[in-house]
Simulated scan of single mutants.
Amino acid sequence: MTAPRIDADTLRRLPKAVLHDHLDGGLRPATLVELADTVGHTLPTTDPDALAAWYVEAAGSGDLVRYIGTFEHTLAVMQTREGLLRTAEEYVLDLAADGVVYGEVRYAPELMTRGGLTLPEVVEAVQEGLAAGMAKAAAAGTPVRVGTLLCGMRMFDRTREIADLVVAFRDAGVVGFDIAGAEDGFPPADHLAAFTYLRGENVPFTIHAGEAHGLPSIHQALQVCGAQRIGHGVRITDDIPDLGAGKLGRLAGWVRDRRIALEMCPTSNLQTGAADSIAGHPITALKDLGFRVTLNTDNRLVSGTTMTREMSLLVEQAGWTVEDLRTVTVNAVKSAFLPFDERNALLRDVVLPGYTSVLRTSPRA
């Protein structure tokens, strides 16, 4: 059956939930230009439109290491309290404008201390900026709730220290932990001390795995480290020899049967070479096989994307329906690092009624 076309305004107004989105990968180009001028950092170009295009081109090399290298410029302007306050506030307002009702934003505090801020000062500034953004979004009639994930960098040795920071701020808006950075050559188990500590403190965490490295990375993240979600996870298909037949290997079966959320980011995966097309991205086949897939942006500036754009690409190129979009949104809320009653309330009071309301008032072409 051919999926009905859904107009762009309807897609924008659909309630959305994003679990995998990096703060330092989502700055507004104009803001990056202004902040770079303030701190004396040289950018590839000072024209905001040209800078946005440069990011997409540079990140689209098919190389995860080069993709990560584009963050040099955003991080350069996120070393001061003022820079962090502004980028965090604008982050929330941009989510609200995109129809996001729940988001989890992640960043690595250790990468934002070159200007003299301490790790706690970095977190305090980001939380203050996020709170300001949420207050403004609510006042504008587009409320959005944003939780924070703190990342340890997997190629460095401060993950245990960042885990302490998560525990210290878990009652101040920090909802979980992650490790980020180049995946290949830096296995999750290298940071087992941090994960063991967090499990003992009842703190949830996700792990980037199955993007640049395959099944061993996913297996370690789940069975050795104890991750509750997997960042990306596209390589789980290596354990499904025939996606059409749907016969799962034991690891893939574990992921599906235990409802472990996969934080999938189609456009980003095309840029890093983890997938070769939107139409052929594993998110569609895995959704159809009953995996708990979620749809995410990863880095909105670097990938030149939004949640509305990610939805539109799947509708236009992979035949997704409104029901498919609702499924991944519900999956994301169910897998959010929020208490059970708060997840249920978000679904009951915001997401499901929002879908019903938008669809009732929106014509389809």
Rank of each mutant, 00 (worst) to 15 (best):
A132W: 02
V351G: 00
A108P: 03
I260A: 01
F71V: 11
T159Y: 01
Q228N: 04
P44M: 11
A365D: 14
D171R: 14
P204H: 07
H208C: 12
H20D: 07
W320T: 02
L251D: 09
K247Y: 00
F186V: 00
L251S: 09
Y91W: 12
A180Q: 06
V33G: 09
Q220V: 06
G147W: 12
H281A: 09
Q79S: 11
R106H: 13
E183G: 06
L117Q: 00
A209P: 00
R364H: 12
A108W: 05
N299I: 06
S362Y: 06
A168W: 06
L51F: 05
Q228L: 14
T31S: 15
R256I: 09
V166E: 07
D7M: 03
L338M: 15
G173C: 12
A318K: 03
A30H: 10
D157Q: 13
E211Y: 11
M264L: 15
E342I: 06
A132F: 10
V358F: 07
G176T: 03
I278Q: 07
T31M: 12
P4H: 12
S357Q: 15
M153P: 06
K16S: 05
Y107S: 02
G141C: 13
D178I: 01
D298Q: 03
E34G: 06
G26I: 04
H73C: 07
V167L: 04
V122G: 08
P187V: 07
H213I: 13
L295F: 12
V18Y: 05
D7K: 09
T308N: 04
E90L: 13
L192F: 07
W320M: 05
V315C: 15
D341M: 07
E128F: 06
R114N: 11
H20I: 02
G233K: 03
G173A: 12
L149K: 09
A279F: 05
A50Q: 12
R86A: 14
D47F: 10
A285L: 04
E89F: 07
T87Q: 10
A180W: 03
H73N: 11
L243G: 10
T294R: 04
T206M: 08
F340L: 14
D276Q: 15
Q228R: 14
G253M: 13
Y102V: 13
L165A: 04
P48F: 11
G304M: 00
A53T: 08
A180E: 04
P188Y: 10
A168P: 04
A88F: 11
A140W: 09
L262G: 03
E161L: 14
G133P: 02
V146Q: 03
A285W: 01
I278E: 07
A3C: 08
S303T: 12
L27P: 00
V92C: 02
T306H: 05
L93T: 10
L289Y: 05
F340H: 14
V203K: 06
